[in-house]
Design a protein around this nucleic acid. Sequence first.
RNA 1: GGCGCGUUGGCGGAGCGGUUACGCAGAGGUCUGCAAAACCUUUCAGAUGAGUUCGACUCUCAUACGUGCCUCCA
Length: 489
Amino acid sequence: MTLKFHNTPTQEVEEFVSLTEKKALVYTCGPTVYDYPHIGNWVAYIHWDTLVRILMANNYDVTRVMNVTDVGHLTSDADEGEDKLEKGARREGKTAWEIAKFYTDDFLSGMNKLGMIEPQHIAKATDYIPQQLDLVRTLMQRGYTYQITDGIYYDTSKFPTYADFARLKPEAQKAGARVEINPEKKNHSDFALWKFTPAGEKRDMEWETPADLLEKKADNKPVMGFPGWHLECSAISMALLGNTIDIHTGGIDHIPVHHTNEIAQSEAATGVRFSNYWIHCNHLKVDSTKISKSLGNGYTLKDLEDKGFSAMDYRMFVLQGHYSNEGNFTFDALTSAKNRLHNWRNIAALRHQIHDTLQNDRDKVASDKTVLLYAAPQAVIEAISNDLGTPEALRIIDDAFARILRARLDNIHRHAFLELLETIDATLGLQLLDSTPDISDEAKSIILERNRAREQKDWLKSDALRDRLLEQGILIRDTDKDSIWEYKS
RNA sequence: GGCGCGUUGGCGGAGCGGUUACGCAGAGGUCUGCAAAACCUUUCAGAUGAGUUCGACUCUCAUACGUGCCUCCA
């Protein structure tokens, strides 16, 4: 099967060809762990989880790295702002290290709730300080750096293709820029590789700047410092995956600055292409407007849970939209997604109610319905392989489920049905199988008893038994042949 | 000023060059011991104007409106 992705540099949907056959090296720009992630942040990770799943469904051996930014991410890219971690630490009266640990753990637990496949490597920026310093050293030796008062900077004018990736037009951009320009910088787009701790300050997180990286030293005191944000992704990616990787993912906001800078510093250092494919997801709006702290619409998973929505409900909501489109979150839309997932679960639960022999299955192969059901898993994989077309995949699943719902239980091909459910869980991570356990033997015997009562037209008894099942969270609906149970919503 | 994304039926929101999304809500009906479900029907679907085409909601261009990025952010 052909895998295709929209590749940012070419702005086209391209066929995916990996560096090594059937192996995929993937790098995901991870969270800055200074606060709870909001639903907009999670959109990206849900899409990248789908990316990993569809690679695996196409038999790729995936090695994925996600960094955790636990140092150096400034609140402003004018390279003057505070470090987010240090700021968060002051806010909560803790050290930056404690803040990083707390929010990293919270992030990982969120990934788990959302049913994500954990990357093979979760790399903390602070664990890769030597590699980052090595990268600065290489860039220095190649003449790409210069030192000013507050740090060591990358000279973007030395990298001729700097503007290409994001199709930047530096002069035009300047006109509308809201950034204060650091007068010591040679070019507007130059960025800090390594920042010096300001004189007289002591940071929770700081490292000694190696002497050979400093242009000149006034005295013999160590110069403390910390990495600029862009440096870590390059250093970690190259350390764990090599100089060139297959796919680098991120949000669209990363295109003009973060990824542009990653490419500049990585390719200047190695002389080879940093990543063959760049996949970027669009942003999520809430109630048609941007997510921002001041509007109070940056809901967290916890906020959704408090309102009665699970992480999986939210995952369904995200999968309903395409990653390249701007999404719009509303609680009505989330309710729709929740209902859809609930309906799907009830359909998944039908597998407990089909009692087949192999012989039955063989007989059913002949019918058109079962043929269509057999085609569904492949169709789902194809849809997602085509530039992560999850909305199309959901449509295919709805189609297949509608056929199942209309069919009588003994007309459903159990094997094909199970295969479809397994494919859905493998590619979309909705955990339909895990979330739909069989009912208890007691409940089953109540259903049998009720069926006997119905045969005897003892409606009083049958309705009483139905109420008893309802108390256990089990709804019964009678069709002309079967009595089917469902989970109460 | 530059770079993007969007505009679909009562609401939210998809796919597709020629046929149903789906969810929520309303109305009528079929079926049913009842309930539920399912199914059928229904309320101007495709911002506007051109173009390509035998044929466009789907491709191209323009216009209008909305919205995001160009400080940190997914």
